[in-house]
Design a binder for these strands. Structure first.
Length: 738
DNA sequence: CACCCTCGAGTTCA
DNA sequence: CTCGAGGGTG
């Protein structure tokens, strides 16, 4: 039983097809009408390929308006599709050393004798396919989907680095030029040319290219033919008036051609070849070089896995000493017989891998610096950037902390900026690429009034770097953020109460502030479309959505949360989980804390004059006290039994937990420590007694090792909770020192 | 009064 | 993760 021809088409497939068609058509329109792609090329290719596959399976889908029927559609008008003689595979990636080792293992298992490896740099450029017939360039095409690419032969004429005619070098081992030769390589801009190009782009008022790959693709895609036609046309009917137009067109053509001339080309593979036989990949390179094709001087044959590691390590150190940008190293099994033995998967050869260097710094355009108002009124500038892929995800925003920080980083709005992921997670703007400044950039000016409520901003205290919106009572941003904070994991932990629902509750007028939260009823929520859904069969009237019901249930459960969570939820300045826990433990009720003298409060460990005063001031505000009263009236528990904890197993110990531990969440692991009288600190210092490192532990582990703080794994953590520090230390994983 | 250690706050993307 | 800033110690 097959789905072919007359089988029913699953609804999913039809939906997906519609989705793909709209993505593709949209991308084509954007590209041809505005010359500005909405999606990345590989995304387009992926969508197109998926469409073809889908239509192959369900031919009924291929209606007359499918983009697949106009192969490349309008794209074909630009650059005709070219089928590669031999399919161009993509390469599997290794992002970590472990993945590299796994590949080395697989290779040695899959082949009896692997022999040499060929290591080469992975150039950040555009993969192309060149076909030479009788030594003459017949076609140059982009990689496309690996089977079919776009014909850019016309432009190839202007790329000096791509040989148009091959000839045999004197003294070469080959006797003659092969009658048919298909080579693969990378077209790229050297870093210096790339920077110049971006300066040019900016001068023309166009966006700079984010990376050399985009620049190479953009340059290769230029309609040189059309520009030439336009120029010829203008010249033929050039009156006095048309003269400036001719000049302009000529200048543009020169620029476009000049760009192509700056492209470099490095070959790194053979597709089809007639009239020559080779046994090794490296031998192939020698042959190509002998024919006058540009091969990399940096490719190196190494005898074993150790050689591979050394090559990778070397260029990891000297990444930026090369004239082009490198995103990694390609490792290939050199022996073609072994390559054949290992074979290919459906998408990539098993005999090669692309090792990608890990910590990435990319460039992108700083479009704007906007400001955000947080729950405490703090005004934080953040960078709004052209979305760019860095270290595994697409980033478009990054915090800039405060106005001083913007000045310190020296970035201007409109700058090209360096961006990285700090700790591989949090995007961080490093600074501007000053070389490509045009003078059109403008400095960021910190607003003086709140963008949300218009209140004049001011620092809380003289000398503070942060400036704040003092309108805590009615600034919409602060209200929303505070409300969402009540629901957050560190506070009352109400699932379903986040930014979105907080905004909805306020917009619909269901709450005036966080005080009304615990009085919410089903009837209330029904008045707000955000929390409702259409009635299904058999129901009458608008219904509460499942999410809304769940949120109400969570709000109900939250009424009996421990006192410290209530304290955190109130957003009292400087009172976070740690201070709240000591306060709750010391006083046992919110009333006692509200009534305490500042002198008394500041005796509490971790609470000093500033925090004590902040607490007193908070409770002195009428509407703050009203919040507490409303919560109390609606059943929120404001006291807790002071559990007399006997001497704990971990009394006086400071433990830092990093990474993920099997069987624990971050919170439950810290709770396990504090329950036993220990202190679960957030950062490692000399005072740390023990670091518990779980899966994928990060910089804290490094810090511990450098400070000589003992480190244990999950086993050690179990021992710690069971029988204390000495038992845990028996499980040290950092190489115990005496 | 330095300094170091912590905490709080804001924050990104899938 | 990073910055700012409070708390505590020498």
């Amino acid at each position: 039983m097959t789905d072919d021809d007359y089988g029913a088409i699953p609804e999913q497939a039809r939906d997906r097809w519609r989705q793909l068609v709209s993505v593709i058509n949209e991308a084509r329109n954007a590209y041809y009408q505005h010359d500005a792609p909405t999606i990345a090329d590989d995304e387009y290719d992926r969508a197109f390929r998926e469409l073809l596959e889908l239509e192959e399976r369900y031919p009924q889908l291929q209606t007359g308006d499918s983009p697949s029927l106009s192969v490349g559609g309008r794209r074909a008008e630009m650059f005709a599709p070219v089928e590669h003689l031999v399919r161009m595979y993509s390469l599997d990636n290794a992002f970590t050393d472990d993945e590299l080792e796994a590949w080395l293992q697989r290779v040695s298992k899959g082949a009896g004798q692997v022999g040499d490896f060929l290591c080469e740099l992975k150039i950040d450029g555009l993969a192309v396919d060149a076909v030479y017939v009788d030594g003459r360039l017949r076609t140059l095409a982009t990689r496309g989907d690996g089977r079919v690419g776009e014909d850019v032969t016309y432009n190839a004429a202007f790329i000096d680095a791509v040989p148009k005619v091959l000839s045999v070098a004197k003294g070469a081992s080959v006797k003659q030029v092969p009658p048919l030769l298909e080579v693969r390589g990378e077209v790229f801009f050297p870093v210096a040319a790339f920077d110049r190009l971006n300066v040019e782009q900016l001068a023309m008022g166009a966006s700079p290219f984010a990376n050399p790959r985009n620049a190479a693709a953009g340059s290769l895609r230029q309609r040189i033919d059309r520009r030439q036609q336009d120029l010829a046309e203008a010249e033929s009917k050039a009156g006095e008036r048309g003269k400036s137009k001719v000049e302009r067109l000529r200048k543009e053509l020169d620029l476009a051609v000049g760009r192509l001339a700056e492209l470099r080309f490095t070959v790194h593979g053979i597709g089809a070849i007639d009239g020559a036989s080779i046994q090794r990949q490296s031998q192939g390179y020698t042959l190509l070089a002998a024919l006058g094709l540009p091969t990399s001087e940096r490719a190196k044959v190494v005898p074993d896995a150790a050689g591979v590691r050394a090559f990778i390590a070397h260029y990891g150190q000297h990444r930026h000493d090369v004239e082009h940008e490198i995103d990694g190293v390609v490792v290939k099994v050199d022996d073609l017989a072994v390559q054949a033995q290992l074979g290919e998967t459906s998408r990539a050869p098993r005999w090669a891998i692309a090792y990608k260097y890990a910590p990435e710094v990319v460039r992108t355009r700083l479009l704007d610096i906007a400001v955000n108002v947080g729950r405490t009124g703090r005004v934080t500038p953040f960078a709004v950037m052209e979305p760019v892929r860095v270290a595994g995800s697409t980033v478009s925003m990054a915090t800039l902390h405060n106005a001083d920080e913007v000045v310190r980083k020296g970035v201007l709005i409109g700058d090209m900026v360096f961006l990285r992921k700090a700790g591989d997670v949090i995007p961080e703007v490093l600074g501007p690429v000053v070389e490509v400044r045009t003078g059109n950039e403008r400095a960021f000016v910190m607003p003086t009034t709140c963008p949300n409520c218009g209140t004049a901003l001011r620092p809380e205290k003289a000398g503070d770097k942060d400036i704040r919106c003092p309108n805590a009572r009615s600034c919409p941003a602060q209200l929303r953020e505070r409300l969402a904070h009540v629901g957050s994991r560190g506070a009352m932990d109400i699932e379903g109460l986040g930014d979105k629902s907080a905004a909805a509750l306020l917009d619909c007028g269901l709450v005036q502030d966080e005080g009304d939260l615990f009085a919410l009823t089903e009837q209330d929520l029904l008045r707000c479309p955000f929390f409702t859904r259409e009635p299904s069969k058999g129901e009458t009237g608008t219904q509460l959505s499942e999410n809304a019901k769940a949120m109400l249930a969570q709000i109900d459960v939250a009424r009996t949360r421990p006192l410290w969570r209530v304290l955190v939820a109130l957003s009292i300045r400087h009172v976070g989980p740690t201070a709240a826990q000591t306060l709750a433990r010391t006083y046992g009720s919110l009333r006692a804390i509200a009534d305490a003298e500042t002198a008394e409060l500041s005796q509490v460990d971790g609470v000093g004059g500033v925090i004590a005063e902040a607490i007193r001031e908070w409770f002195a505000v009428d509407w703050h006290r009203a919040v507490v009263e409303k919560w109390y009236a609606n059943g929120v528990q404001l006291t807790e039994e002071r559990v007399q904890t006997g001497p704990g197993l971990l009394d006086g110990l400071t433990i830092v937990i990093t990474g993920s531990l099997p069987g624990f969440t971050r919170d439950s692991a810290t709770a396990a420590v504090t329950d036993r009288g220990g202190k679960a600190a957030g950062s490692v210092s000399k005072k740390t007694d023990l670091v518990v490192a779980g899966e994928s532990a990060g910089s804290k582990l490094d810090k511990a090792l450098s400070l000589g703080v003992p480190v244990v794994g999950p086993d050690g953590f179990a021992a710690l909770l069971e029988s204390g520090l000495p038992a845990a230390l028996a499980n040290r994983t950092d190489g115990p020192q005496a």
